[in-house]
Simulated scan of single mutants.
Amino acid sequence: MKKMKYLIVALGLMFALAACSGEQEKASEKKTDSKNAVNVHKGLFNVEITIPASTFEGQDINKVIDEAKKEGIKKVTKNSDGSLTYKMTKSQHEKLLKSLNTHIESSLGEMKTSKDYTSIHDVTHNQNYTELTLLVDKQKYENSMDGFSLVALGMSGMMYQLYDGKNDKDIQVKIHVKDKNTNDVFKTVVYPNDFDKTE
């Protein structure tokens, strides 16, 4: 669970950590529609991602920008609302998504082996994280707090789709919980609709 929480927090800074390269395209600044939302704009030759100011609270913003530039992202714009707009080529964006996918896969692997989630035996998903299946020991699952893992899974799936450029109104993650003994799905949640219903 610790790594899953780290992943969600770290996603906004991943651009400064991803080793990317490529030529820079000239374009106008893309500002976020909401100061608390990530905004992704896919152009013909480049991708612009605006990350809200809240992601960088407590950090030296100039250092964040410098780190991003050191990693190959040549254009980072600080907007008037404190958000940062990262501009990258499509190939850089693809590398970013691969890096994000690696982090999520690592977190899912830990979830399957962690002593914190004793009922979980496997986690599978489709390519874009719009649908995941949790294979569990139903009796252990229902007598534990393992249901909270669904929130982390939902957030990871939503975040991946968001950074992939999917419209936030269309983002949806469906998670099935299946009993490993009977192979029956006994619970299905759909995020973001079911966040308030997660047990």
Rank of each mutant, 00 (worst) to 15 (best):
I120Q: 05
L96G: 02
G12P: 04
T50D: 10
G82T: 01
V76K: 05
E67I: 00
M88E: 13
I49D: 10
I104F: 15
S149V: 15
F148H: 04
Y191P: 06
S83N: 12
N36D: 09
V136T: 08
A10P: 07
Y129H: 03
F195Q: 02
A27I: 06
E23W: 14
E48D: 14
N36H: 04
S144F: 15
M158Y: 09
H93Y: 11
S83L: 00
S114F: 05
D170W: 00
Y141A: 06
K112W: 10
Y191L: 13
I49H: 11
T102G: 09
N128Y: 00
P192R: 15
E105S: 14
K169I: 02
M1R: 07
S114N: 04
G165P: 10
K178P: 04
D168S: 14
D196T: 13
E71I: 03
T133K: 04
N39R: 14
D184A: 09
K30W: 12
D196R: 09
P52L: 03
L132E: 01
D196S: 08
E110W: 14
F195H: 05
N101P: 00
S119A: 09
F56L: 04
L84R: 14
A10D: 11
L17Q: 13
K87E: 08
L84Y: 15
L150Y: 02
S80K: 15
K42S: 05
T50H: 12
V38T: 13
G12A: 03
I65D: 00
D33Q: 11
S114E: 08
D137Q: 01
N183Q: 03
Q92V: 08
Y129N: 00
L7M: 11
M1V: 01
S149L: 07
N79A: 11
N128F: 03
K42L: 06
K69C: 03
V123Y: 09
H125Q: 06
T55A: 05
T124S: 05
V47T: 14
K138E: 12
L135P: 02
F15S: 11
T89M: 14
Y191R: 03
A18F: 12
D168W: 00
K197L: 09
G22I: 07
N128M: 00
K174H: 08
Y191F: 09
F15Y: 15
F195V: 08
N79G: 08
I8V: 15
S28G: 06
N183M: 02
H103Y: 10
D170T: 06
L132F: 03
P52R: 14
I104V: 10
I49T: 15
V47Y: 02
M111S: 06
G165R: 14
Y86Q: 13
V136C: 06
S34G: 12
D170H: 13
Q127D: 14
L162T: 15
D168M: 08
S91A: 13
F45S: 15
D137N: 02
P192M: 10
T198P: 01
F45G: 07
Y160V: 00
D196P: 02
C20D: 12
I51T: 15
A27Q: 13
A10I: 06
E71A: 00
G82S: 00
K178Q: 03
I104Y: 07
L135R: 09
D60N: 05
T89A: 15
F148P: 02
H93E: 11
D179T: 07
D168H: 11
